[in-house]
Design a protein around this nucleic acid. Sequence first.
DNA 1: TAGATTGTTAATCGATTAACAATC
DNA 2: TAGATTGTTAATCGATTAACAATC
Lengths: 214, 214
Amino acid sequence: MNVPTATVSRLIVYLRVLDSLASAGKSRTSSEYLGNEAQVSPFQVRKDLAYFGRFGTRGIGYDVAELGQRIRTILGLGRSWNTCIVGLGRLGQALVDYPGFGPQKEFHLVALFDTDSAKIGKCFGGLAVRHNWELPQAVAELNIQLGMIAVPASSAQEVATALVQAGIRGILNFAPAVIEVPLHVFVEKTDVSAALERLTFYLSAAQADRRPAP
Amino acid sequence: MNVPTATVSRLIVYLRVLDSLASAGKSRTSSEYLGNEAQVSPFQVRKDLAYFGRFGTRGIGYDVAELGQRIRTILGLGRSWNTCIVGLGRLGQALVDYPGFGPQKEFHLVALFDTDSAKIGKCFGGLAVRHNWELPQAVAELNIQLGMIAVPASSAQEVATALVQAGIRGILNFAPAVIEVPLHVFVEKTDVSAALERLTFYLSAAQADRRPAP
DNA sequence: TAGATTGTTAATCGATTAACAATC
DNA sequence: TAGATTGTTAATCGATTAACAATC
């Protein structure tokens, strides 16, 4: 049974809805409510959850705290993940301040890398920048599991290869480039240019009648 | 005929490949080459292009410059787009420096908005921050077509509503929140937390045997 | 019990893959 | 002409939607 990528993305949204329900002091919810908030059908919510088991009570609905906890576990958020950033240009520096990093959070920023000698040794967010060639050693010593690529497109592949060789299996690629990795490595991408260009596609007069799939 | 969202994303990748071919001085290419670079099948490349017309020559392939130009037009990149940023926290400030903004580029940053009185009037990238309530006037006067939301999740919906009321029809949402807009408005999202969480899902031991759809 | 809402199976829809005829 | 490669139609695959039986 293969879980669709879209299902994983939606689980993340459901979890946020559950978290805000919990903050609001609610203890019970339904596939209908979750669907409304996530802008998907109740069918979709139940189908998505069904990939992973049974989480609710027929006739009653879901327990907010319990479902939240179980989705958290499914998403691998029950533990902490050591993360590094490669490339400390403007984007890399901005990522250091990403609010998802913190002692109470799942993601810990533990190392910074660059190849620019002017940057090596500089500190950002309390971490000194190391040279890329320290990657293998640092990944092993600091037990780094995730790498963020914040270098120009032209060196993204090189950095990805170095991360993989150092033993990293999860990469978040911010460079506007397709990177090639072995099958056991997972890559996610976040690309501002591409997002803007999708917008202009849909806004363009010629495509005014075309809507993105829901 | 409805164009799949995935097709639009792939066109963007093909365009990048074509641009780098052009830089390398190549004048001709094939669906096989484009597919290799974009990590999709040659079938997929031809099918994607077929949504928009005929671009190649049987037996020969595609002209790099011409196909690039035509994809650019399809994506609405033949013109320029005035853009604003709402929210000048760390993320908003980093976006000001986004290299896709520039006089030679398709995207022009023309206004900044925030509600924090400590930020109003401050300059970033040569632009003074205005109060959100200037949105309607500024959108009209500066002919702003695109808005980037860089505020916390808790105020994302409010800002989206304000952007829509000001007349903006294309929104790039960086806040980790689902926003609701009228049908004629397009929303793209870029969400670092969600990308990281998809990675941890796939990396988690329990899901180690599950691969994302290609 | 009756009403509500889940979990699951079946039907539909859409996208991807494959095959091949067209043609340079 | 023969080889190459597109454009397009057909087949397959997968995801979404719908329906409904299970059950609290």
